[in-house]
Design a protein around this nucleic acid. Structure first.
Lengths: 338, 338
DNA sequence: AAACGTTCAGCAAACGTTTTCAGAACGTCG
DNA sequence: CGACGTTCTGAAAACGTTTGCTGAACGTTT
């Protein structure tokens, strides 16, 4: 194995070349402390010339911090995650921190993987449903700053999430009451992610409110477009379609729409479909997808802010931030169709 | 700002407690060198008790390596990237290396961001089309091991990609010759990614081969589902639809299919549609999407291997790996439709 | 002219590892 | 009994920073 070696110059080299001490170079590089104009100029020139960048390793060791944040996702597919990431990253950048994304793709030993990552960052944001409770607790116990994303509330750990239950309740009532639909079916697995669980709760809540009887059991599938397609396919094979399909997110909704159209059904005339998230694609189909908008970017940004506060120890130990959501009524629920 | 402090025990502490030197603890922790059974047992116990993990910072400094690889994507949405990532990550794990994913979301100053990241890893894999040539060159000049992914060949830098041109040529000939379609339209922007460029080349190549005249200019859109939808929409607004739509990837193809179905056209009877990649969703619609399968996971894995070799200096300086692809004929091109 | 405050710069410790070198303890062989 | 291998262990240097402390040089007050 050859030398992996460091690339680029070190403080030492710059110092030697300029004839000053490393301390001075360090100060100049960071723009702190008192340095005479003349010295500063000379050092700056050398830094420029060698394209010197302080080693994150050395710096990390000295400052007892890694200069990085991690965010843990179930995978890294999809517009939702992408958007959340964007907000998180932007906020991290503002604080001059790097971001490590951890997609638990091959999470066989995700506990191990997460702990390794935890050792390389100053704090972690963990998406709901991707890590078992005790893994999170162990992280926490070890002293790692952690915040939970799209999940909670949870004792002792700050959480950031969006309003799900009542939004889904309102959406369901819209179908039940305003449109007068019966036979609603929920697509999504309440056990696999907190988000799906909240939405399922809102679904039931609206049924009780409307006196619509016990809803059918959910079609338990994941959150991808394929899952939505498969769910619809399965439903169609099993018998006559439901009057309306309420999907746990937009991607499954679009998958379902595709399956319906593909088999000759019309949306919303034959089957109404709704989603959640309001991803870019949701506004496109001619009918437009009726959905709930959640501030995904802001979700990521706030998570980063809370994590930052958690890291430097300011702010209360644990809070539960809930961001607002609101209904987006388009055509796929039947509104605007004669 | 409070103490960011280190979490967990250090070699020192374990050493002190066990009454041995740090050197010995280090040896035991890594399982190297000669240590008496008795000592080993005692040290191991202490390590266990404190849940000691060597600090990546200290270790990195001492070994002049970061123990991490980076992979740079244009964003982090979509099944294609997800799959490539998986392969890359798996290979990195095997080498006990962490992976840093860099999605150039807000790449205003992506050059800066990439260089910062480069300073924290042992090598980078860069997806074609996300970084300008000179940014890559600067990385390279500085001594950072770099390999290009889904792009190339490029002098002085190893590249890993899949066979695109002839695959798209064959697919196009299938539509042109076997199905006898005329009026083919290509959806995708050859200027925005090497992959799209290769495919556009294959498209033209087949037209020349079949004596089919000059193809229409491409509909220049991105690679997301929305882009495919929008492209089809635009086409439909402009006049009668083409006989067949050849999309740069599966996601745009599915977006286009959705737009067609949404407006009452049938696929493939009215318009045939093809994609590229063979993502999971491609096999689902009743007709099934005709496409080209590329070994995405393997693409990621091979990239990691090449990068690893690049890092430890073994292997030739620069090679161009080309992975095989093959046609997947399903129904969306018109095959199997009476 | 003495005392004092400022400004600038360097020394050296600290951060947590890995690794080279040397030495101690012990047994074996001639 | 001396010479010599083994086997185990520790001291210390090195990696590249940051930062508290000390002090020199210089100007400003009394």
């Amino acid at each position: 194995m050859a030398r992996r070696g460091r690339r680029g110059a070190t403080l030492q080299e710059i110092a030697q070349e300029t004839g000053v001490s490393v301390a001075t170079v360090s100060r100049v590089a960071r723009g702190v402390g008192q340095v005479s104009d003349d010295t500063r100029r000379r050092v700056l020139a050398a830094i420029e010339r060698h394209d010197f960048r302080p080693s994150p390793l050395g710096r990390g060791l000295a400052k007892r911090s890694h200069g990085a944040l991690a965010i843990v996702f179930p995978g890294l597919s999809g517009p939702y995650y992408s958007e959340v990431m964007g907000g998180f990253e932007e906020e991290a950048m503002r604080a001059e921190l790097a971001v490590v994304i951890l997609g638990t793709h091959l999470l066989r030993e995700s506990g191990q993987l997460v702990r390794d990552t935890a050792a390389r960052v100053d704090g972690l944001a963990v998406m709901g449903g991707v890590l078992s409770d005790d893994v999170v607790d162990r992280l926490r116990d070890r002293g790692d700053p952690v915040v939970l994303l799209a999940s909670g509330p949870r004792a002792g750990i700050p959480t950031v999430r969006t309003e799900n239950v009542s939004a889904f309740d309102r959406l369901t009532r819209h179908l039940l009451v305003d449109h007068g639909y019966d036979r609603l079916v929920f697509v999504g697995d309440p056990d696999s992610s907190p988000d799906a669980a909240y939405r399922w709760t809102g679904f039931g809540q609206a049924h009780r409110y409307a006196g619509a009887g016990t809803p059918a059991s959910p079609v338990r599938v994941g959150l991808t477009q394929s899952d939505g397609f498969i769910a619809m396919d399965r439903l169609l094979d099993a018998g006559p379609p439901p009057r309306a399909l309420m999907c746990a997110n937009d991607e499954t909704a679009i998958g379902a729409v595709l399956a319906l159209l593909d088999r000759g059904y019309r949306v919303p005339q034959d089957v109404a479909v709704t989603g959640f998230d309001d991803i870019p694609m949701a506004g496109l189909p001619v009918s437009g997808l009726t959905t709930v908008r959640q501030p995904m970017r802001e979700l990521g940004a706030v998570t980063a802010q809370v994590l930052l506060r958690e890291i430097d120890g300011s702010g209360p130990a644990a809070v539960d931030h809930v961001l607002e959501t609101h209904l987006v009524i388009r055509g796929s629920c039947g509104c605007g169709t004669t």
